[in-house]
């Protein structure tokens, strides 16, 4: 059982690197993306500073300026998401195929033992395709998702691909949404 769980950690490390590598080839290294990213970061920081400086003032002129900049930032963010979206779809498809392959390999196999009793809405995931009703048995998909959640984001941050805090704070939900988890 231990071998299986370590194998899953290894698989998710590999898929995380593969995913980031593919995204790098398709998105990160393109000039359009780099330009937009620098632009968005610069604007977000500027906007944040401006908001801090004139946060409470009711000056109409400042308000208008801030609004105009927000609008520009929104447009840039949208462009950035569009650039990312195309490759995300391609990678998403590839990973769905890969995941269904792993799913069939680990079908019905208990890969780990949970040290806690999962709450009911997690049981569907943690006990997926497993025989019996011992809910401390853990299925492939649950461990894989947990691994992906921690490993992928850390790798993104380590490689400097994660969006900066200022950008995700100013950018709203569209840009701040975490990348597809390849479910």
């Amino acid at each position: 059982m231990w071998g299986d769980s370590l194998l899953i950690v290894f698989i998710s490390i590999c898929t995380a690197f593969l995913g980031e590598g593919l995204t790098w080839i398709l998105v990160y290294r393109t000039e359009k993306y780099q330009k937009l990213k620098v632009e968005v970061e610069r604007q977000s920081k500027k906007l944040e500073k401006r908001k801090e400086a004139h946060g409470d003032s009711l000056d109409k002129q400042h308000k208008k300026k801030i609004e105009r900049e927000e609008e520009r930032l929104k447009n840039n963010n949208r462009d950035l998401s569009l650039v990312k979206m195309k490759s995300m779809f391609a990678i998403g498809f590839a990973f769905t195929a890969l995941l269904s392959m792993f799913n069939s390999i680990f079908d019905g196999r208990v890969v780990a033992k949970l040290p806690f009793y999962p709450i009911s809405w997690i049981q569907g995931l943690s006990h997926r395709n497993l025989p019996g009703d011992n809910y401390t048995d853990c299925s492939f998909i649950f461990l894989y998702i947990l691994c992906t959640m921690s490993i992928r984001q850390n790798i993104q941050k380590l490689l400097g691909f994660a969006p900066s805090r200022a950008a995700s704070k100013q950018g709203g939900a569209l840009f701040a949404a975490p990348p597809a988890q390849f479910k």
Partner: peptide, 16 residues
């Protein structure tokens, strides 16, 4: 998530 993964794996290996 990192905590859960290490906890589950250690638990599985040592006390499953």
């Amino acid at each position: 998530a990192g905590f859960l993964v290490t906890w589950i794996i250690m638990f599985t290996g040592l006390h499953s």
